[in-house]
Each structure stands twice: as structure tokens, then as C-alpha cells.
Design a protein around this nucleic acid. Structure first.
Lengths: 207, 207
DNA sequence: TTAATCTGCTTAACACTGTTAAGTAATGCA
DNA sequence: TGCATTACTTAACAGTGTTAAGCAGATTAA
């Protein structure tokens, strides 16, 4: 007996939808092929008809995550705003995404790469788009003399890694309970700004 | 037949030594109870005679890691040096530890806490010692007027998370190949310095 | 209309994983 | 000599990702 009749949307779609929901509600480490299959109402091996393996299924979800974060940032970042405002908005939106979508964030940035194969090239390119956006903002801010940085690409990576560290620290519960999370985030972004802003202009920061 | 005769050092010790070596050479995700047992020359269940479960064994290794990183930092940081030098030395030593001991770093900072139980209280205290050291250095530098920071503890956490993000980015291979690793690290530390020594009254910046 | 093929899914199985229950050989002690 | 303890073992359970083989129904070809 086949179950096609039950899933007019197509089994592949159902598997992906179910996986997404299970990821968000039960967390990444509860996501097993058999559990997904159980929820979907098909056999575990059926998943392999539509995804090469668990990594491929995960990559599909990761891809969704990068789609989400990119569109979130793109919406928030107003191109007519100053480079400084854009920069802070990118930072804040990245952090917000991590805190609002912890399980997505985990599979996107936190999985030990020893446990999952690397993203295929075209998905990797997608994953890079937010960084590219920050590079552009930094370049713009440097040209207008607001940012005092040498290499926008290198700087973007440094900033990005610091944001990632902040989100990770919170998500993995490695933050001291005494630390106020909002103050922490504010200071993370504040540090980023201080690090890239030309000294002469630091006192002029208006937000 | 028991194997005690083969392991005059004691089985617990042998298990720990073997696990450490396997962690370093084969990586964390290759570390299984049966593989450890196979290498040691005992049965997998024997490990449970000396460790409650795999987490407990891992916690023992994690503890060793924190012992290592603390002693490394303590040796490097000369108490007669300036707070600025001490601070940079702490940063650099933390990053170096991560890059030189990637598998230790992974189990200490990178494992999804959903996959491993939290450190017991006394081990958590040990794990915090390097952060405490940074807090002290920041406090010292602030008192001597060199660091322009409001809350040394909060600042230490922000700096720490940025270092963690940098190490993580490198270890998880999420760094662009175009980025020079040494330049990256230098800039990470440079940013940290700029963030805490900037001229501006950053405490006045409202975000 | 019947036979062959194809499609979409299934069951069974393999090789792993952490972990527990039960059993066994050697030792020390009464 | 007999009992208890110590230090370990084997067997098993429930779970994991994954593959091979099979099966029922639809489609196509003769």
C-alpha cells in the first residue's frame, strides 16, 4: 500500500515540512529519520527516496535558514540609511535571528562539521550573502570616511565571528546568569562599532 | 579473566589516558565507548565501573582541558606587565589554545549542550577561572585609567565571546579561504583592544 | 486482454551507538 | 574449606543512519 493518497502535497514536501516543525519544536538532536517518518506516516526508508541522506535533508533545512536570515536582514537594512545604521542593523538582526530561531541557528552555524558534510557550493554561496552585505556596508562606510578600517572583507569576518560568538554563548547556555542578556548584546554591538569607527568620529556617534 | 595485570596503572587511569589520546588523534566524533574499550583492551561495560556514563568520561577530559588552558594563560600572563599587555596575552593564549587543541576545544566549548549534560558545579567553577582572570585584568586596567569600560565582568564576557567566535569560525572551517588566519587573529585582538581603550565615552552611547 | 515494466513505497537487515542486567573467575577472609 | 567481595565479562535492549530486496498498483506494449 502506498501513502501517496494521504499526502496530496507530495511526500518530499511533507517530509520537509514535518522535519522543519520537529526541528523547531523538539530540537535538532531529537531529529531522527525514524521519528520524522513516524510523524509523517511513512517508513524511514522513504525519506531516502527524496533525500540522499540525513545530511541532504538537513542541508535543505539549513538552506531555508539562510533564506530566512537573508530576507530578514535585507528587509531591516534600509539602503538609504547611513552605513553606521545599516551596520548596526545587520549586527542586531543576525543576533536576533539566532536568539529567535535557536534550532535553525544550531544547524546553520553550530553543528560540528565533523558530524555533517559540508554545504554544497551553491548553498554555501547563499550562506555567504549576509556577510557580503556587511562587507558592502563596511566598504561604503569606509569610503564616506566614517569607518576607519583597512580591509572591509577581513573586518567583516572579524565582526561576524564576534556576533557568532555572542549568539553561541547565549544559545549554548554558557553565559553567566548574572549577565543581563540585553546589556550583553548591546555591548557586543557597541564593541563592534567602537572597533571600526574612526577615532576622531567616535564621540559623534548618534544612533 | 581480568585484565588488571595488564594495567598496573589502574584501569580508570588507562581509560582516561586512552580516551585523551583518541580524542586528540581521531577526534571527538570518533570517540565511542566500544572503540575506547577496544583500544584499552577491556570490555565497553568496564568503563562504566569507573565513569557513570559517557558524559562523565567526557567531563573528565573537559576538566583536563580547562586545567590546561588555565595553566597556559597563567604562565603567559606576567603579573608585572601592564594591564593592556596582560589583556592581549590572555586573548592570544585563549585563541592559541583553541587552534592548538581543536578537539579539546570542541568538547569544552563547542558541543551542543543538548547532547551533553552540564558540567557539575565544581568543574564549572574551574572552567570560569580564565574569565575571572580577564575580569581582574580589565578591572586593573580600568583603575589605572587605561581601559575605558563600565562593567569589567560584562565586558569580559563580551570579549570572551568574540574570541570564542573567532576560534569557532576557524575550527569549524567556516572561514573564507581568502582570509589570512594570522591577520584575522591579529584583527580580532586589535578589535578587542580598540573596543576597551577607545577615547570616546562609550558609556554615553545609547543604542 | 494479457504480459511486462515502471513507480512508489515497504519490510528486513546491517553495522553502529550508549547503556543495563546478569553472570563469572579470582581474590581475601572466616 | 566455604563464603563474600572484587573486577571484570557476555548478552541484551533500544536507539541510530543506511542499504538491499521485495511488493502492490498503475501504466504501457503486444
Amino acid at each position: 500500500m502506498n501513502i501517496q493518497s494521504l499526502t496530496e502535497a507530495g511526500l518530499r514536501r511533507t517530509i520537509l515540512d514535518t522535519s522543519r516543525q520537529m526541528l523547531v519544536t523538539d530540537g535538532f538532536n531529537q531529529l531522527s529519520m525514524r521519528k520524522i517518518a513516524g510523524e509523517v506516516g511513512c517508513s524511514a526508508t522513504s525519506i531516502y527516496l527524496y533525500f540522499d541522506n540525513k545530511d541532504a535533508l538537513l542541508h535543505a533545512l539549513i538552506d531555508e535558514g539562510f533564506e530566512m536570515i537573508y530576507s530578514l536582514i535585507r528587509v531591516k537594512v534600509k539602503t538609504d540609511a547611513s552605513a553606521a545604521d545599516q551596520f548596526q542593523e545587520i549586527c542586531r538582526e543576525f543576533i536576533n535571528f539566532g536568539l529567535n530561531n535557536p534550532e535553525y541557528y544550531k544547524i546553520m552555524f553550530l553543528i560540528d562539521p565533523g558530524n555533517i558534510s559540508r554545504l554544497p557550493a551553491e548553498k554555501f554561496r547563499k550562506a555567504r550573502r549576509p556577510v557580503v552585505m556587511m562587507i558592502e556596508t563596511l566598504t561604503e562606510g569606509r569610503e564616506s570616511g566614517y569607518f576607519n578600517i583597512k580591509d572591509p572583507e577581513l573586518t567583516a569576518h572579524v565582526i561576524w565571528s564576534s556576533l557568532h560568538g555572542a549568539v553561541t554563548a547565549i544559545l549554548t547556555n554558557r553565559m553567566d546568569v548574572k549577565i543581563d542578556q540585553n546589556l550583553f548584546i548591546d555591548l557586543v554591538i557597541n564593541h563592534a562599532m567602537r572597533a571600526i569607527t574612526a577615532e576622531a568620529l567616535v564621540t559623534d556617534i548618534k544612533i
